[in-house]
Amino acid sequence: MQVFDVIRGDSPIVLGQPHGGTEVPGAIAGRLNPNGTQLADTDWHIAQLYEGLLPGATMVRSHVHRYVIDANRDPAGVSLYPGQNTTTLVPLTDFDGQPIWHAGQEPSADEVEARRLAYHAPYHDALAAELDRVRAKHGVAILFDCHSIRSNIPFLFEGELPIFNTGTNLGTTCAPAVEAAVDDIARASGRTAVLNGRFKGGWTTRHYGQPAQNIHAIQMEIAQRAYMQEAAPWAWGPSRAADLRPQLQKMLDHLTTLALSGAITSEGSA
């Protein structure tokens, strides 16, 4: 099974996609209960949504489903949102709080560690290498972490999620100009948008976002109603996606311009 792939480009932008994969090794798949086998919490069609938006962007995408191990969680198992409902490094429930494993088939601590080594670590080794390569070429790298989620999940948040949910961990993972470049376009799109709302950036954004080291990271969580059907069979929505993609393209183009201008190097943003 292919754990991840890398599409290498020469842009200063790296697109991370940790949750679009649907691969589940057979021995693990057999332990998922009927609810778990639906893989409902996938970032469905995320690669297709971003495909071709920024020629030259590097893409690092996991093929392993988040029920095997969540590549956007702290490998030490520390909660991203203390005191709030969330899922863990290897989830025991879905986003609705319902079990995904057959009773007695939940992974042990030793198994979680084995999965971390087999799936989580290689993905992040590849992502770190690409960010280092891009920074060496341009003097700066911007990680745009690509996510999507159902619009209504009472277990995780109240009400309906805005279309654009930009996360920078309260401005700590990127220069202000990077945050503004994305959030301003989201708000000007005429769609609902929030900055550092329920989703402030996962472990990937928080771990790699080191503006003083010229690596900036930002998470974009998109409500899936903007581009697809939010229930099985999770169908792609061509007309909705066609309306959404130009907004994402504007964000990536603006970030590219910022990076190439030198405005957000550690010297330029001091």
Rank of each mutant, 00 (worst) to 15 (best):
V178L: 06
R135A: 13
Q84R: 14
A188P: 12
I100S: 01
D74C: 10
D96P: 09
G167C: 02
A186M: 02
N169G: 04
R116L: 04
T168K: 00
A180E: 05
L117Y: 06
A109Q: 03
A57N: 08
G190L: 08
F157L: 05
G77I: 02
R115M: 04
L127N: 04
E106D: 05
S108Q: 09
A188M: 06
Q84P: 14
A180Y: 09
Y67R: 03
D110M: 07
A175N: 04
D94F: 12
A71Y: 02
A129V: 14
R150E: 09
A177W: 03
E113L: 12
G171T: 07
A175I: 06
Y123K: 10
R187C: 10
P82H: 15
T93Q: 08
R66M: 13
G171L: 07
P176A: 04
L156H: 03
A188L: 08
L156Q: 09
T172Q: 07
A71R: 02
A103K: 08
P75L: 01
G171V: 07
F155I: 07
H120L: 04
E158S: 11
A136I: 11
D96T: 06
S151N: 09
D70V: 11
A118E: 05
V140R: 00
H147K: 05
V64S: 13
A177T: 08
E130D: 14
Y81T: 15
E160I: 06
F144Q: 03
Y119R: 02
H138D: 10
A181L: 13
I142Q: 04
I69G: 00
G190S: 09
A109E: 09
C146D: 01
G97D: 12
I142F: 08
L89E: 02
C146Q: 02
S108A: 07
V178K: 01
N72V: 11
H124M: 04
S151Y: 06
G139C: 12
R61C: 15
V60N: 03
T87L: 09
N165T: 01
G171D: 03
L161I: 05
E113H: 11
N165H: 01
R135I: 04
R116A: 02
F157I: 03
D184H: 11
L143R: 00
G83Q: 15
M59Y: 15
